[in-house]
Amino acid sequence: MPGDDNGFREFVDARYMDLLRIAYLLTGSAHEAEDLLQGSLVKVMRRWKRIDDPWPTCGRRWSTSTSACGTDTGVGR
Rank of each mutant, 00 (worst) to 15 (best):
M1T: 03
M1I: 06
P2F: 01
P2H: 00
P2Q: 10
P2C: 01
P2G: 07
G3Q: 02
D5E: 04
D5W: 00
D5A: 02
G7Y: 05
G7N: 11
F8H: 07
F8C: 05
R9C: 14
R9L: 13
R9V: 09
F11P: 00
V12Q: 13
D13S: 15
D13P: 01
D13L: 15
D13I: 11
A14I: 01
A14F: 01
A14N: 02
R15K: 12
R15W: 08
R15E: 14
Y16C: 03
Y16M: 06
D18V: 11
L19M: 13
L19D: 03
R21G: 12
R21K: 10
I22G: 10
I22V: 06
I22Y: 01
L25E: 11
T27M: 13
T27F: 00
T27A: 15
G28A: 09
G28T: 05
A30C: 00
A33N: 04
E34G: 10
D35V: 04
D35M: 09
D35Q: 13
L36K: 03
Q38Y: 09
G39K: 13
G39P: 14
S40V: 09
S40H: 02
L41Q: 11
L41D: 03
V42A: 08
V42W: 13
K43P: 12
K43C: 12
V44W: 02
R46T: 03
R47C: 04
K49T: 14
R50L: 09
I51W: 03
I51T: 13
D52V: 09
D53L: 04
W55I: 04
P56Y: 12
T57V: 15
C58Y: 02
R61P: 00
R61Y: 05
R61S: 02
W62E: 04
W62V: 05
S63M: 07
T64N: 01
T64L: 01
S65G: 10
S67K: 15
A68H: 08
A68N: 11
C69F: 05
G70R: 07
T71K: 10
G74M: 11
V75C: 09
